[in-house]
Design a protein around this nucleic acid. Structure first.
Length: 618
DNA sequence: CACCACACGT
């Protein structure tokens, strides 16, 4: 939700020069913290720092059970092992991402009166933050102050990351500035990288880059993480050329070598834009650099092929990874399942799904959501419903996406009441509907001719984000005009302009389509011409929509000009426009001489169709 | 003994 909808105010101006508002981030005691004892007696003589059995404690722990057993063993020893041994163990559990377990161990350490230090506290705070309990992290900071543990850059970075994890980017920025201004700590490269990550998370690439420059000026050299963070963000925003600019700066000006993450980000960015040649060039460059592709590299390729519907090629990639000794993982199979679903090949999707368990890879909620979406798209609503309930039976938690998908599916088959039930179920489970939920509901209502309900829901939603969401407006405009309520559509269009929102290509296109449907071709043409002026030039779809409008309304004068323009732009005709054109030629309404032009505008895929009436053009 | 970056779902 962060990238597509920047509801956060963009951070403008110079990063460190804005005055920082007073910060109330819980430096004091937090009454809600659940794991810190209110007071810990220091008892340094009884748990001295000397270890009687250091060797067994030094054994490596590679799994959670070993770690927990070792911890239990350590707690039995007298004297207790040193804080360092405990902290090392805490760190290994944390590295395994068992943050809740880490906090439990910490709680036991507190009860055992192990004296805590800043190392322990930074790990504990990190655990809180990673668990989306940044509030508890700040409570732990208060605990540090009371215990005369002076927080340092490690602790502050963990907290900063916590704010960012919770999408509290503005607070993160304020916190970061406060740390510098009040000289609470001098940020290191990691802290800068964390702040840059936060800025990137809200697509604020410009400020992210200026912070990158600023850290350099302040004597903190950006590293491969700094650059990779920004490069990845630029790639995600499809600003691939800017990403490469930064990549070159990193390599040639700063002499920093890219690593596998840098390459993966760039390859992903190129693949997602369909720039396959450059992607494979990049892959080669990576190999030449002595870096072997990892499971993520392959997953990027698998996913990209799947999204293009080329599941066969995706399967080939999987075979290559197997040959290279890299095992496909959950993400690989999730992409593959999604690929089959996209093609409507549900039995293949299902068989991949069924094979996963056999391979020792267990479906997660994402797997289920993809499969669920597949059934919904194929209108197999009964199977979808069964799958929806299976999620819970398998011990997984259906999330917002699961519910959104199910609601969408029910609307598709016209089961509006059932959709409502799932929505209520979602609320009852304490899940928070997001903008997608509301879009799906609004669109579902529109498609089921319940435009009034959609409009009243829209007005009910009142203030915020959704009422200023161009996608929502577009849905409603389309819905209204399809329900024959062009007046409502026009009013909505005017309304969004009044709010200072910018219609996008889709908005204009549905409006043009609506006008054409009512036979108001002149206004449609007017709006079409307005698009380029507004810096939002019509796309392939717009041209097809307008053409259809002209043909259906027997407005033949502008057809040829429009076709020529399409040819110039490299656009193509879709099937229904083409068939209308053929009908018009056949009926003698259009000049047969236009056939040559029309033929140029037919995409190759359509020419392969055996049912194609070639004779029209001969 | 501690803090940061990449892949999948509406």
């Amino acid at each position: 939700m962060n990238r597509s909808f920047t509801y956060f105010s963009k951070i403008k101006g110079n990063f460190l020069k804005t005055p920082s508002p007073n910060l109330h981030l819980g430096f004091g005691f937090c009454p809600h913290n659940t794991f810190l004892p209110s007071r810990i007696h220091s008892n340094s003589s009884s748990n001295a720092h000397n270890d009687k059995h250091p060797q067994s404690i030094n054994q490596k722990v590679n799994n959670l059970d070993d770690a927990l057993n070792l911890f239990d063993e350590m707690t039995q020893r007298r004297p207790l092992p040193s804080i360092i041994k405990f902290t090392q163990l805490l760190q290994s559990v944390t590295k395994m991402k068992h943050y809740s377990h880490s906090l439990n161990l910490f709680k036991q350490m507190c009860l055992l009166r192990v004296p805590l230090d800043k190392f322990t506290m930074s790990i504990v705070i990190k655990c809180c933050c990673q668990l989306h309990r940044t509030k508890d992290g700040f409570a732990a900071l208060g605990f540090c102050f009371r215990r005369a543990i002076v927080p340092n850059v490690f602790i502050f970075s963990a907290l900063l990351d916590g704010l960012i994890i919770e999408d509290r980017i503005l607070e993160a920025e304020i916190f970061f500035k406060k740390l510098i201004k009040e000289k609470l700590c001098e940020p290191d490269v990691v802290m800068y990288n964390t702040m840059i990550k936060g800025l990137c998370k809200i697509s604020n690439n410009v400020i992210a880059i200026s912070l990158l420059k600023l850290m350099d000026e302040r004597g903190c050299k950006p590293d491969v993480v700094t650059y990779s963070t920004v490069i990845d963000s630029l790639c995600k925003d499809k600003l691939i050329d800017e990403a490469f600019k930064l990549f070159k700066e990193m390599v040639f000006q700063k002499g920093i070598s890219p690593d596998i993450i840098t390459y993966n980000s760039l390859i992903d960015g190129l693949c997602k834009l369909g720039r396959w040649d450059e992607a494979s060039k990049m892959l080669q460059e990576m190999l030449d650099d002595g870096i072997s592709p990892d499971v993520q590299t392959f997953n990027i390729l698998v996913d990209a092929y799947c999204k293009e519907g080329k599941v066969k090629e995706a399967e080939d990639v999987i075979n290559i990874m197997l040959k290279r000794g890299i095992l496909p993982d959950l993400v690989t199979y999730n992409s593959l399942i999604d690929g089959y679903c996209l093609r409507g090949e549900m039995s293949k999707a299902k068989s991949v799904f069924d094979s996963m368990e056999f391979r020792g890879i267990f479906p997660d909620v994402v797997t289920y959501n993809s499969l669920l979406n597949g059934y919904c798209k194929s209108l197999k609503i009964e199977e979808a419903m069964n799958l929806f309930h299976e999620v819970t039976r398998k011990g997984l938690k259906p999330d917002v996406v699961t519910h959104n998908t199910m609601i969408h599916g029910l609307f598709r088959v016209g089961h509006c009441g059932d959709a409502r039930k799932i929505f209520d179920e979602m609320l009852a489970k304490g899940l928070k509907p997001d903008e997608n939920t509301y879009r799906i509901i609004l669109e579902g209502l529109c498609n089921n001719h319940k435009i009034e309900e959609a409009l009243s829901l829209f007005h009910l939603m009142g203030d915020g984000k959704l009422n200023s969401d161009i996608v929502v407006y577009t849905i409603l405009i389309e819905g209204a005009s399809k329900c024959g309520k062009l007046d409502d559509a026009t009013a909505l269009f005017q309304d969004l302009i009044n709010k200072g929102l910018h219609p996008n290509v889709k908005t204009y296109t549905v409006m043009i389509s609506g006008l054409c449907r009512e036979g108001i071709v002149q206004d449609a043409k007017q709006l079409f011409l307005q698009m380029a002026e507004s810096g939002c030039p019509p796309d392939n779809v717009t041209y097809n929509v307008l053409l259809q409008g002209y043909l259906k309304n027997k407005h033949y004068d502008d057809v040829e000009m429009l076709l020529e323009k399409m040819d110039e732009l490299g656009y193509s005709l879709d099937v229904s426009t083409l068939s209308l054109l053929i009908d018009s030629i056949a009926a003698g309404s259009l000049d047969t001489a236009m056939s040559t032009l029309i033929r140029k505008l037919v995409p190759d895929e359509l020419m392969d169709s055996p049912s194609w009436p070639y004779d029209v053009f001969s």
